[in-house]
Write a protein that binds this DNA or RNA. Structure first.
Lengths: 139, 139
DNA sequence: GATGGGGTCTGTAGCTACTACAGAAGCAAG
DNA sequence: CTTGCTTCTGTAGTAGCTACAGACCCCATC
Protein backbone atom coordinates (compact mmCIF):
# COMPACT_ATOMS: atom_id res chain seq x y z
CA UNK A 1 0.00 0.00 0.00
CA UNK A 2 2.92 2.33 0.41
CA UNK A 3 3.47 2.07 -3.35
CA UNK A 4 0.18 3.81 -3.78
CA UNK A 5 1.32 7.08 -2.28
CA UNK A 6 4.32 6.78 -4.55
CA UNK A 7 2.23 7.15 -7.66
CA UNK A 8 0.21 10.08 -6.41
CA UNK A 9 1.46 12.39 -9.12
CA UNK A 10 2.52 16.00 -9.28
CA UNK A 11 0.62 19.03 -8.09
CA UNK A 12 0.52 21.94 -10.49
CA UNK A 13 3.42 23.75 -8.82
CA UNK A 14 5.70 20.77 -9.49
CA UNK A 15 4.65 20.75 -13.11
CA UNK A 16 5.49 24.41 -13.32
CA UNK A 17 8.93 23.93 -11.76
CA UNK A 18 9.80 20.95 -13.97
CA UNK A 19 8.78 22.56 -17.23
CA UNK A 20 9.22 26.25 -16.59
CA UNK A 21 5.61 26.86 -17.59
CA UNK A 22 3.78 29.32 -15.38
CA UNK A 23 0.99 27.87 -13.22
CA UNK A 24 -1.63 30.18 -14.68
CA UNK A 25 -0.48 29.18 -18.14
CA UNK A 26 -0.90 25.48 -17.36
CA UNK A 27 -4.49 26.12 -16.34
CA UNK A 28 -4.91 28.20 -19.48
CA UNK A 29 -3.68 25.26 -21.58
CA UNK A 30 -6.30 23.10 -19.93
CA UNK A 31 -8.99 25.65 -20.67
CA UNK A 32 -8.08 25.76 -24.34
CA UNK A 33 -7.85 21.97 -24.37
CA UNK A 34 -4.29 21.31 -25.35
CA UNK A 35 -3.73 19.83 -21.90
CA UNK A 36 -6.22 17.26 -20.55
CA UNK A 37 -8.23 17.65 -17.38
CA UNK A 38 -6.05 15.90 -14.83
CA UNK A 39 -7.11 13.85 -11.83
CA UNK A 40 -8.04 15.74 -8.72
CA UNK A 41 -7.38 15.13 -5.05
CA UNK A 42 -10.36 14.67 -2.74
CA UNK A 43 -10.10 18.39 -2.03
CA UNK A 44 -10.10 19.34 -5.69
CA UNK A 45 -6.43 20.03 -6.43
CA UNK A 46 -4.95 18.93 -9.74
CA UNK A 47 -2.73 15.82 -9.76
CA UNK A 48 -0.71 15.22 -12.88
CA UNK A 49 0.98 12.03 -14.07
CA UNK A 50 4.15 11.48 -16.04
CA UNK A 51 2.49 11.47 -19.47
CA UNK A 52 0.97 14.83 -18.74
CA UNK A 53 4.36 16.13 -17.71
CA UNK A 54 5.83 14.96 -21.01
CA UNK A 55 2.99 16.59 -22.90
CA UNK A 56 3.53 19.90 -21.16
CA UNK A 57 7.25 19.73 -21.92
CA UNK A 58 6.40 19.12 -25.54
CA UNK A 59 4.21 22.21 -25.60
CA UNK A 60 6.85 24.31 -23.89
CA UNK A 61 9.60 23.24 -26.27
CA UNK A 62 7.37 23.80 -29.27
CA UNK A 63 6.40 27.26 -28.05
CA UNK A 64 10.06 28.12 -27.61
CA UNK A 65 10.57 27.07 -31.21
CA UNK A 66 7.91 29.56 -32.13
CA UNK A 67 5.13 27.15 -33.07
CA UNK A 68 1.73 28.73 -32.58
CA UNK A 69 -0.81 27.15 -30.26
CA UNK A 70 -2.76 26.02 -33.31
CA UNK A 71 0.28 24.40 -34.85
CA UNK A 72 0.95 22.63 -31.58
CA UNK A 73 -2.66 21.58 -31.42
CA UNK A 74 -2.29 20.02 -34.85
CA UNK A 75 0.86 18.17 -33.82
CA UNK A 76 -0.72 16.91 -30.62
CA UNK A 77 -3.85 15.77 -32.40
CA UNK A 78 -1.73 13.66 -34.71
CA UNK A 79 0.05 12.20 -31.73
CA UNK A 80 -3.19 11.59 -29.85
CA UNK A 81 -4.83 9.84 -32.75
CA UNK A 82 -1.62 7.87 -33.28
CA UNK A 83 -2.08 8.48 -36.97
CA UNK A 84 0.60 10.64 -38.39
CA UNK A 85 3.39 10.16 -40.83
CA UNK A 86 6.81 11.62 -40.70
CA UNK A 87 5.94 13.46 -43.90
CA UNK A 88 3.03 15.31 -42.30
CA UNK A 89 5.11 16.44 -39.37
CA UNK A 90 7.88 17.47 -41.71
CA UNK A 91 5.40 19.54 -43.69
CA UNK A 92 4.20 21.39 -40.65
CA UNK A 93 7.76 22.08 -39.59
CA UNK A 94 8.80 23.34 -43.00
CA UNK A 95 5.79 25.58 -43.13
CA UNK A 96 6.72 27.06 -39.81
CA UNK A 97 10.32 27.44 -40.93
CA UNK A 98 9.15 29.44 -43.93
CA UNK A 99 7.23 31.85 -41.73
CA UNK A 100 10.23 32.25 -39.45
CA UNK A 101 12.37 33.12 -42.46
CA UNK A 102 9.77 35.64 -43.59
CA UNK A 103 9.93 37.30 -40.21
CA UNK A 104 13.72 37.45 -40.32
CA UNK A 105 13.58 39.00 -43.75
CA UNK A 106 11.16 41.66 -42.59
CA UNK A 107 13.19 42.48 -39.54
CA UNK A 108 16.39 42.80 -41.58
CA UNK A 109 14.74 45.34 -43.82
CA UNK A 110 13.58 47.21 -40.79
CA UNK A 111 17.04 47.07 -39.26
CA UNK A 112 18.51 48.60 -42.38
CA UNK A 113 15.99 51.42 -42.38
CA UNK A 114 16.63 52.20 -38.73
CA UNK A 115 20.39 52.16 -39.18
CA UNK A 116 20.04 54.49 -42.13
CA UNK A 117 17.91 56.94 -40.18
CA UNK A 118 20.14 56.86 -37.13
CA UNK A 119 23.25 57.46 -39.22
CA UNK A 120 21.91 60.74 -40.50
CA UNK A 121 21.25 61.99 -37.01
CA UNK A 122 23.75 64.30 -35.37
CA UNK A 123 22.58 63.18 -31.91
CA UNK A 124 23.11 66.75 -30.85
CA UNK A 125 21.13 69.11 -28.69
CA UNK A 126 19.41 70.68 -31.64
CA UNK A 127 15.62 70.57 -31.75
CA UNK A 128 15.62 69.34 -35.27
CA UNK A 129 15.94 65.76 -36.16
CA UNK A 130 16.31 64.01 -39.51
CA UNK A 131 14.77 60.90 -37.97
CA UNK A 132 11.52 62.69 -37.24
CA UNK A 133 11.65 64.32 -40.62
CA UNK A 134 11.93 60.93 -42.26
CA UNK A 135 9.03 59.61 -40.25
CA UNK A 136 6.94 62.62 -41.14
CA UNK A 137 7.64 62.92 -44.81
CA UNK A 138 6.63 59.55 -46.23
CA UNK A 139 3.53 58.76 -48.23
CA UNK B 1 -16.99 81.39 -50.06
CA UNK B 2 -16.17 78.55 -52.39
CA UNK B 3 -12.71 78.47 -50.85
CA UNK B 4 -14.40 77.44 -47.66
CA UNK B 5 -15.69 74.18 -49.02
CA UNK B 6 -12.18 73.62 -50.28
CA UNK B 7 -10.78 73.48 -46.79
CA UNK B 8 -13.49 71.24 -45.41
CA UNK B 9 -11.09 68.46 -44.71
CA UNK B 10 -11.10 64.72 -45.16
CA UNK B 11 -13.65 62.22 -43.95
CA UNK B 12 -12.24 59.17 -42.27
CA UNK B 13 -12.41 57.04 -45.40
CA UNK B 14 -10.11 59.47 -47.20
CA UNK B 15 -7.66 59.32 -44.33
CA UNK B 16 -7.73 55.59 -44.56
CA UNK B 17 -7.11 55.57 -48.31
CA UNK B 18 -4.28 58.10 -48.11
CA UNK B 19 -2.40 56.40 -45.30
CA UNK B 20 -3.38 52.77 -45.65
CA UNK B 21 -4.58 52.75 -42.04
CA UNK B 22 -7.83 50.89 -41.49
CA UNK B 23 -10.83 53.05 -40.53
CA UNK B 24 -11.44 51.12 -37.34
CA UNK B 25 -7.79 51.53 -36.47
CA UNK B 26 -7.98 55.30 -36.92
CA UNK B 27 -10.85 55.44 -34.44
CA UNK B 28 -8.85 53.16 -32.17
CA UNK B 29 -5.92 55.59 -32.31
CA UNK B 30 -8.27 58.35 -31.26
CA UNK B 31 -9.56 56.26 -28.37
CA UNK B 32 -6.03 55.63 -27.08
CA UNK B 33 -5.22 59.29 -27.64
CA UNK B 34 -2.39 59.19 -30.12
CA UNK B 35 -4.69 60.87 -32.62
CA UNK B 36 -6.66 63.97 -31.56
CA UNK B 37 -10.42 64.29 -31.61
CA UNK B 38 -11.06 65.84 -35.00
CA UNK B 39 -13.70 68.33 -35.98
CA UNK B 40 -17.13 66.99 -36.76
CA UNK B 41 -19.68 67.78 -39.43
CA UNK B 42 -23.11 69.00 -38.34
CA UNK B 43 -24.21 65.39 -38.55
CA UNK B 44 -21.36 64.13 -36.40
CA UNK B 45 -18.95 62.70 -38.95
CA UNK B 46 -15.22 63.18 -38.43
CA UNK B 47 -13.46 65.83 -40.55
CA UNK B 48 -9.70 65.73 -40.57
CA UNK B 49 -7.24 68.41 -41.61
CA UNK B 50 -3.83 68.21 -43.22
CA UNK B 51 -1.87 68.16 -39.95
CA UNK B 52 -3.89 65.22 -38.78
CA UNK B 53 -3.19 63.45 -42.02
CA UNK B 54 0.53 63.99 -41.54
CA UNK B 55 0.29 62.74 -37.98
CA UNK B 56 -1.46 59.58 -39.06
CA UNK B 57 1.17 58.99 -41.75
CA UNK B 58 3.83 59.38 -39.10
CA UNK B 59 2.15 56.76 -36.95
CA UNK B 60 1.74 54.39 -39.88
CA UNK B 61 5.36 54.71 -40.97
CA UNK B 62 6.57 54.25 -37.42
CA UNK B 63 4.42 51.16 -36.94
CA UNK B 64 5.83 49.72 -40.14
CA UNK B 65 9.27 50.31 -38.70
CA UNK B 66 8.17 48.25 -35.74
CA UNK B 67 7.91 51.01 -33.16
CA UNK B 68 5.41 50.10 -30.46
CA UNK B 69 2.45 52.34 -29.75
CA UNK B 70 4.17 53.49 -26.58
CA UNK B 71 7.34 54.38 -28.41
CA UNK B 72 5.29 56.32 -30.93
CA UNK B 73 3.44 58.02 -28.13
CA UNK B 74 6.79 59.12 -26.69
CA UNK B 75 7.93 60.48 -30.05
CA UNK B 76 4.67 62.31 -30.61
CA UNK B 77 4.72 63.82 -27.14
CA UNK B 78 8.15 65.27 -27.84
CA UNK B 79 6.86 66.66 -31.11
CA UNK B 80 3.71 68.03 -29.49
CA UNK B 81 5.57 69.75 -26.68
CA UNK B 82 8.05 71.03 -29.24
CA UNK B 83 10.80 70.16 -26.81
CA UNK B 84 13.02 67.42 -28.06
CA UNK B 85 16.56 67.16 -29.09
CA UNK B 86 17.98 65.14 -31.88
CA UNK B 87 19.86 63.14 -29.23
CA UNK B 88 16.66 62.02 -27.52
CA UNK B 89 15.09 60.85 -30.73
CA UNK B 90 18.32 59.11 -31.67
CA UNK B 91 18.31 57.33 -28.32
CA UNK B 92 14.79 56.05 -28.81
CA UNK B 93 15.65 54.85 -32.28
CA UNK B 94 18.82 53.08 -31.18
CA UNK B 95 16.93 51.40 -28.35
CA UNK B 96 14.39 50.17 -30.81
CA UNK B 97 17.13 49.02 -33.16
CA UNK B 98 18.65 46.95 -30.37
CA UNK B 99 15.36 45.18 -29.73
CA UNK B 100 14.96 44.49 -33.44
CA UNK B 101 18.43 42.94 -33.48
CA UNK B 102 17.57 40.82 -30.47
CA UNK B 103 14.53 39.52 -32.28
CA UNK B 104 16.57 38.68 -35.36
CA UNK B 105 19.09 36.82 -33.23
CA UNK B 106 16.36 34.79 -31.57
CA UNK B 107 14.73 33.93 -34.87
CA UNK B 108 18.04 32.84 -36.38
CA UNK B 109 18.61 30.40 -33.53
CA UNK B 110 15.14 29.12 -34.03
CA UNK B 111 15.68 28.76 -37.75
CA UNK B 112 18.77 26.66 -37.12
CA UNK B 113 16.95 24.39 -34.71
CA UNK B 114 14.10 23.88 -37.17
CA UNK B 115 16.45 23.17 -40.06
CA UNK B 116 18.30 20.65 -37.91
CA UNK B 117 15.13 18.87 -36.95
CA UNK B 118 13.76 18.83 -40.48
CA UNK B 119 17.04 17.46 -41.86
CA UNK B 120 16.82 14.37 -39.72
CA UNK B 121 13.35 13.59 -40.92
CA UNK B 122 12.87 11.03 -43.67
CA UNK B 123 9.59 12.68 -44.70
CA UNK B 124 8.34 9.17 -45.33
CA UNK B 125 5.10 7.40 -44.63
CA UNK B 126 6.35 5.90 -41.40
CA UNK B 127 4.47 6.73 -38.21
CA UNK B 128 7.64 7.59 -36.42
CA UNK B 129 9.19 10.97 -36.57
CA UNK B 130 12.47 12.32 -35.24
CA UNK B 131 10.94 15.79 -35.10
CA UNK B 132 8.30 14.69 -32.63
CA UNK B 133 10.90 12.76 -30.72
CA UNK B 134 13.02 15.85 -30.38
CA UNK B 135 10.06 17.86 -29.21
CA UNK B 136 9.13 15.19 -26.70
CA UNK B 137 12.49 14.42 -25.25
CA UNK B 138 13.75 17.74 -23.96
CA UNK B 139 13.91 18.91 -20.36
C1' DG C 1 -7.49 19.03 17.51
C1' DA C 2 -6.11 23.54 16.56
C1' DT C 3 -3.15 26.52 14.09
C1' DG C 4 -0.16 28.43 10.72
C1' DG C 5 1.71 29.08 6.33
C1' DG C 6 2.29 27.65 2.30
C1' DG C 7 0.00 25.95 -2.26
C1' DT C 8 -4.05 25.84 -5.00
C1' DC C 9 -8.85 26.85 -6.47
C1' DT C 10 -12.35 29.53 -9.71
C1' DG C 11 -13.59 33.35 -12.16
C1' DT C 12 -12.74 37.49 -14.15
C1' DA C 13 -10.17 41.34 -16.00
C1' DG C 14 -6.04 43.07 -18.06
C1' DC C 15 -2.28 43.29 -21.63
C1' DT C 16 -0.94 44.68 -27.23
C1' DA C 17 -2.65 46.29 -31.37
C1' DC C 18 -6.03 45.71 -33.68
C1' DT C 19 -10.35 43.76 -36.19
C1' DA C 20 -15.24 42.74 -36.68
C1' DC C 21 -19.48 43.08 -36.07
C1' DA C 22 -24.75 45.21 -35.23
C1' DG C 23 -27.89 48.57 -35.83
C1' DA C 24 -28.56 53.33 -36.55
C1' DA C 25 -27.67 57.52 -38.78
C1' DG C 26 -25.27 60.80 -42.19
C1' DC C 27 -24.45 62.22 -46.85
C1' DA C 28 -24.39 62.95 -51.90
C1' DA C 29 -26.26 61.96 -56.49
C1' DG C 30 -30.06 61.33 -59.42
C1' DC D 1 -37.29 61.67 -52.05
C1' DT D 2 -35.04 57.56 -52.62
C1' DT D 3 -31.03 54.82 -53.14
C1' DG D 4 -26.78 53.24 -51.72
C1' DC D 5 -22.50 54.14 -49.88
C1' DT D 6 -20.06 55.91 -45.76
C1' DT D 7 -19.80 56.68 -41.12
C1' DC D 8 -21.40 56.48 -36.34
C1' DT D 9 -21.13 54.21 -31.35
C1' DG D 10 -20.43 50.52 -28.54
C1' DT D 11 -19.11 46.09 -27.67
C1' DA D 12 -16.78 41.74 -28.29
C1' DG D 13 -13.37 39.01 -30.39
C1' DT D 14 -8.30 37.70 -31.71
C1' DA D 15 -3.32 35.37 -29.50
C1' DG D 16 -1.17 33.93 -25.63
C1' DC D 17 -0.81 34.68 -21.83
C1' DT D 18 -0.62 37.29 -16.87
C1' DA D 19 -2.62 39.09 -12.64
C1' DC D 20 -5.43 39.59 -9.43
C1' DA D 21 -9.37 38.63 -5.38
C1' DG D 22 -11.19 35.87 -2.10
C1' DA D 23 -11.83 31.28 -0.84
C1' DC D 24 -10.20 26.73 0.01
C1' DC D 25 -6.71 22.64 0.52
C1' DC D 26 -2.84 20.37 2.58
C1' DC D 27 0.64 19.19 5.71
C1' DA D 28 3.51 19.86 9.68
C1' DT D 29 3.93 21.21 14.24
C1' DC D 30 2.32 21.96 18.94
Amino acid sequence: MSDFTNTRGYPIGEMSKHTGVNIETIRYYERIKIMPQPDRTAGGNRQYNHDELKRLSFIKTSRELGFSINEIRALLEMVDRQDFTCGEVHGLTIGHLASVREKIKGLRKLEKALVGMAAECSQGDVPNCPILETLFEAR
